[in-house]
Structure formats: structure tokens, C-alpha cells
């Protein structure tokens, strides 16, 4: 027997009496699950229904990783120039301005120092919503300076990658940021300061060809897309059918390029556990 029985057929509420749900109150995950926004926030932006890890930015990651969301932001005022006077269908300067207005960010990375489980940690976190998290001179410089800060104060470094790759509008200047950031990481490695690379959805192109793959450990979140060439490019070039899990975090771990995958709820614990173990400190 049915639990409920519909007595009247069809929608009976007149349109003018219908209540609109304000935007941002609900989130719909890719599998179609509807989640309350507040519940999502309290669950590390992971859908409690299906475990889907929603893309988040530096604001959210800082909140997750720094104690009480307290931190000092570094090199806040570095912003992009347009050295090449680059113009495609839009001027690069206009793109920058639009991105800054839309996101309230100055560029695609924010760097900060603060306490995580009571100990100092430097975090550089990329923001995908700023021109696809693309790496130009500013991203390179801020990451290099964050590494410098780590070096100077002997504090471990975490880089959270979330990027489509190099920023085309800065052409070869952005390519050279791969060398610039890698040179700094080499100095960090020589000084034996731990560097953790967290690859989040998506980490592709120039970032995987530099800092994202150079961690003492490389880690990721479930389901993140990580790869050098984008899946479409690979498919078009080779004409091959790609495996279903191609370039997911799980695929990369299976092929030996990630140390582990952690759900976001355990991220802070796992990062600090690694640091305590590798530095032979009491586990916090």
C-alpha cells in the first residue's frame, strides 16, 4: 500500500503564490543531489550525499587549514602588468580588470602564513575562478616569495594547485615561471624544508610541469583532474579512446605520481601528520 496518496492531480499552487528559493541556498552536485548550502559549508564543501568535492578557492582552503581562520597574507599587493600589450578577442588589461571585479581577488594565487594545529605553515593557494587559475608573472613571483619566506623562517610550505596552466597572455614570461618556481623549490629542498604539493581539481598544464609534481609528497582530493595535456588534446592527437578514470587523482595514484588521496575533511590532519613524521616531531 502506498504511504501517500495524491488526491488532486497536477500542481495546484498558483504561480504568484509560489515561493522562490534565493540563489546560493542550495547546491546541486554533478550526480544531481541537492544539498543545503550551509550544510555543504559545514562539511568542508563536500557533498554529504555523494562525497563530491566542490571546487573551492583560497578563502575556503585557508579556513580549512589555518587554526581559527587566522593568518597573515603575504605580498598582497603584487598584481599583473601587461608587458606584451596582449590582445586577442579582448585586451588582457580588460580581462584582468573584469576578473578582479568579478572575484575580488588581485590574481590567481594567494599566499599566507599562519598556524595549523598550532605550528607555523606557509600556504600558497591558487584560485581557479581568476582567469582559470592561470600562472603568469604574478603567480610565479608570489609562489617564489612564499618559498623564500619558508626558507628564511624555516617553515614548511604547502602549495595548493588549481590551474588550467600557464597564462597565454604573458606568453614566454609565463613559461619561465616554471623555471623560476622550480629553482626556488630546489633551494627549499637543499635546505631540507618539507614541501607538500596538494593537487586539486583541476591541476593541468604548466603547473604539473613544475611545482605541482615536485612535492616531497604529492597529494590530492578524490576525483580531481590532474594531467599535463588536457584530455581533449590527448584524444584528438592519438585518436585513442581514453579510460574512464583517465587523469583522475585515482589514476595518478595508481600510476605512481601521488602519495595519497585524502578527503577534504581529513586534509588538515593528514598534512600535519606527515610533517610531524618526516621532521621526527611528536604527533600533534
Amino acid at each position: 500500500m502506498a504511504w501517500f496518496k495524491r488526491t488532486q492531480k497536477g500542481i495546484q499552487t498558483p504561480t504568484e503564490q509560489k515561493k522562490d528559493v534565493p540563489k546560493g541556498l542550495w547546491y546541486k552536485s554533478p550526480t544531481g543531489k541537492i544539498i543545503d548550502a550551509e550544510q555543504l559549508e559545514n562539511n568542508f564543501y563536500v557533498s554529504p550525499e555523494d562525497g563530491y568535492h566542490v571546487r573551492i578557492g583560497s578563502v575556503e582552503y585557508f579556513k580549512i587549514l589555518f587554526d581559527d581562520n587566522k593568518f597573515k597574507e603575504l605580498d598582497k599587493n603584487i598584481s599583473s602588468k601587461d608587458p606584451l600589450n596582449f590582445e586577442d578577442t579582448k585586451k588582457y588589461t580588460d580581462r584582468l580588470k573584469a576578473a578582479q571585479e568579478k572575484t575580488g581577488l588581485t590574481d590567481a594565487v594567494r599566499t599566507a602564513v599562519g598556524k595549523s594545529k598550532g605550528k607555523d605553515l606557509v600556504i600558497a593557494c591558487m584560485d581557479f575562478k581568476f582567469i582559470g587559475g592561470s600562472m603568469g608573472s604574478v603567480v610565479g613571483e608570489k609562489i617564489a616569495r612564499a618559498a623564500d619566506y619558508s626558507l628564511k623562517h624555516n617553515i614548511p610550505l604547502v602549495i595548493i594547485s588549481k590551474s588550467g596552466g600557464a597564462r597565454m597572455m604573458e606568453a614566454a614570461l609565463s613559461l619561465m615561471q616554471l623555471a623560476k618556481t622550480s629553482a626556488k623549490l630546489a633551494q627549499l629542498a637543499d635546505a631540507k624544508i618539507p614541501y607538500i604539493s596538494l593537487c586539486t581539481d583541476p591541476t593541468t598544464g604548466g603547473t604539473t610541469a613544475s611545482f605541482a609534481m615536485l612535492g616531497d609528497i604529492n597529494i590530492s582530493e578524490p576525483g580531481a583532474l590532474i594531467g599535463f595535456a588536457g584530455p581533449r588534446v590527448v584524444k584528438d592527437t592519438t585518436g585513442q579512446d581514453l579510460p574512464k578514470d583517465f587523469q583522475t587523482a585515482e589514476f595518478l595514484k595508481e600510476h605512481g605520481f601521488l602519495d595519497f588521496i585524502t578527503p577534504r575533511s581529513e586534509l588538515k590532519d593528514k598534512i600535519n601528520l606527515y610533517l610531524d613524521l618526516i621532521l621526527n616531531q611528536p604527533v600533534r
Binding site: S182, S210, M213, F228, V234, T237, F246, H255, F257
Partner: peptide
């Protein structure tokens, strides 16, 4: 940009 290149870590090889 090949399937096997990705499996064997093209990004990691270049970064290294």
C-alpha cells in the same frame, strides 16, 4: 600529448 605519456607522468618528468 599521448595516453601513455600521461600514464608515465609527462608533467612530472618535465618538472623534475
Amino acid at each position: 600529448p599521448g595516453l601513455e605519456a600521461e600514464e608515465r607522468g609527462q608533467g612530472e618528468a618535465i618538472a623534475r
